[in-house]
């Protein structure tokens, strides 16, 4: 009897060790490319070409950053990390705010109020959740051109107001965690509908808002398709960070590898920093989004 138990324990033990080995290998695969990127951003170009691959950071990072700042002065390379950051942060922060605020508002309208169109409106939101951007992009850019909005940021920011997937999430959250009675209590106390929403409901939605704000921030920061569709004139003063990376990539004249790596690092740095602090929240958020319905 004891033997059976022991062999079972031994087998489980062996399997656990095997699983751990696989997990460690996968961890290395996940981190290694990003690690090499960061390491190479700290090395001088000649060192990268001569010494090849290494995993130990060097001390050239500040120098490389200084180089990237001057890229625009020396050659015809349209790159500026500062302008890129300014544009990307402007678009990302505005779009994130709009997405979260108006998604809460739409979900609130659907959950709290009992009106005839609320059912059909919700069905509509569900149905359009999966329409990909690419499908509408041709008509979108042409239409924005007709409105003289291409080469402006409006088409990149305003559409954030209508985010079906976020509305869906907010609605689920409200249904499960938001006490609707509180709205009536506020009414009795004489609070107007909008001020109830702003002063009472929004603060109660904080956990959901936090998660969705992070996801919206990441999605907007990483968005490369819409900006490159809308900013037709290719004026680099308007470029977002991913466009700056593309601009450096497609330039054959830039032979400094350290600077190239540094440019990529700069484009993902804000995201990585956010992830370092909020990774648990993000990972839990993915899991919640997964169990829809």
């Amino acid at each position: 009897m004891n033997n059976v138990k022991d062999s079972y324990a031994a087998r489980t033990m062996a399997k656990s060790v095997g699983v751990m080995v696989v997990l460690v290998i996968l961890t290395i695969i996940c981190i290694l490319p990003i690690w090499i990127l960061f390491v190479n951003a700290t090395r001088a170009s000649q060192v990268i070409t001569n010494d090849g691959l290494t995993l130990i950071p060097s001390n050239y990072f500040i120098k490389n950053i200084q180089e990237t700042v001057h890229l625009n002065d020396i050659g015809k390379i349209s790159y500026s990390a500062l302008i890129g950051y300014k544009n990307s942060f402007l678009i990302t922060i505005c779009a994130t705010f709009l997405t979260v605020f108006f998604s809460c508002m739409t979900a609130y309208g659907l959950v709290i109020y009992d009106f005839r169109m609320s059912g059909p409106a919700y069905t509509f939101i569900l149905a359009v959740m999966m329409v990909p951007v690419q499908v509408t992009s041709v008509g979108f850019v042409k239409f924005m051109g007709d409105l003289h909005l291409t080469d402006t940021y409006w088409p990149l920011i305003l559409p954030a107001i209508a985010a079906p997937a976020v509305v869906f999430y907010m609605r689920q959250y409200m249904k499960s965690a938001f006490p609707a009675d509180i709205v009536e209590a506020a009414r009795i106390d004489g609070s107007g509908e909008f001020s109830t929403f702003i002063t009472i409901s929004l603060p109660m939605m904080k956990p959901a808002i936090g998660v969705q704000a992070i996801f919206a921030f990441i999605a907007n920061w990483n968005n490369f398709y819409t900006p490159s569709m809308i900013l037709i004139s290719r004026n680099f003063k308007q470029y977002t960070m991913p466009m700056m990376v593309q601009s450096i990539l497609s330039n054959d004249k830039l032979s400094d590898l350290g600077v190239r790596y540094t440019a990529i690092v700069l484009s993902i740095l804000p995201i990585i920093v956010i992830y370092c602090f909020l990774s648990r929240l993000i990972v839990d958020g993915v899991a919640e989004g997964g169990v829809k319905e």
Binding site: M105, G109, L110, D114, V135, T136, G139, F140, I161, A162
Partner: peptide, 30 residues
């Protein structure tokens, strides 16, 4: 309070109409 329901969901649908639905129809037209 039914009318407030419409007020709250109106911005979503206006923006969706201008930036998604019209472009989609425009794509079909083009």
């Amino acid at each position: 309070y039914a009318k407030y329901g419409y007020y709250f969901i109106l911005p979503f649908f206006i923006v969706y109409f201008i930036f998604q639905l019209v472009p989609l129809l425009n794509t079909f037209r083009l």
